[in-house]
Amino acid sequence: MTKIILRQLIIMLLSLITLTIFTFSLTRFFPVDSSITGNANVDNAAHLFFHYFDYLKLIVSGDWGYSRINGSDVLKDFLLYFPATIELSFAALIISISIGLPLGVFAARHKNMWQDKLIVSTTLVGYSMPIFWWGMLLVLLFSLTLSLTPVASRIGFEYDILPVTGFMLIDTLISNKPYAVEAFFDALHHLILPAIVLGTIPLAIFTRVTRASMIEALSSDYIRTAKAKGLATSRIIWVHALRNAMIPIITIIGLQISVLITGTLITEIIFSWPGVGKWLLEAVYRRDLVTIHGGLLAIASTVIFINMLIEITTYLINPRLRLQK
């Protein structure tokens, strides 16, 4: 148990070191900021090593330099925008799981019938959807034509909500403004459409994976035993089969982090969502190399960290892996 966690921690550390070597060499090739990289003309390999060490010290101590455009602290900026991205991704994940899972199970139960075929081909459609176009289409339909959802941003501008946690849904409720509840629903209302756009591709993938692993689980011996025991069908499906189908699904959830981050880059631009993706792209448009460097480092470390968590979780919930030793 501790051995596994230790192993994953070491892997994560190695990945982080590789990452910092990579970003360090970027700062070498592209003069990012003298405060981060130190003296630029270094020809001695030993010097280079010391410079890397200095760089590492700065990164670890949280000094990631200052934006070239507005002079703000890059790490602080990242932490300011990050909760918005998490909130959006989390909402997308919830939507995709809560729809994808039952849909996959449903398709598996009706394997090779028309319902199944319809679901499978729909997921393929969702899977091939260029997300920037999908976002525009939904805005065109729900916001501009039907006026059902707001056009952009996290909350109506008239609400003055101080970022305490950075999560709008929480901040609205803990703010002691008279309109706290109203603001909460407004924030929720703003969240729906971007979350649906962002959740579409993960939804397609979850449905497919759930379907595949449910089909496998349903054809196994213990299900036949359960049926023979006379258990209710819904219980067999939702408790016995799904539990075993969960393992590949959880692994897939981990893999979706990458998909979600790619998606947020574009979704945040379309919905003018003040998150990390929009922040990073603005920096790209302004060629603010210090911010780009910090953004890459921060997002990549987050991905590495989440991957580690997923590895450990998969291990914990998989009895076979646990018992292997």
Partner: peptide, 14 residues
């Protein structure tokens, strides 16, 4: 929530 959101749209006193 979808419906609630729509309703709030019309009674913005803030």
């Amino acid at each position: 929530v979808l419906l609630a959101g729509c309703n709030f749209h019309e009674t913005k006193s803030v």
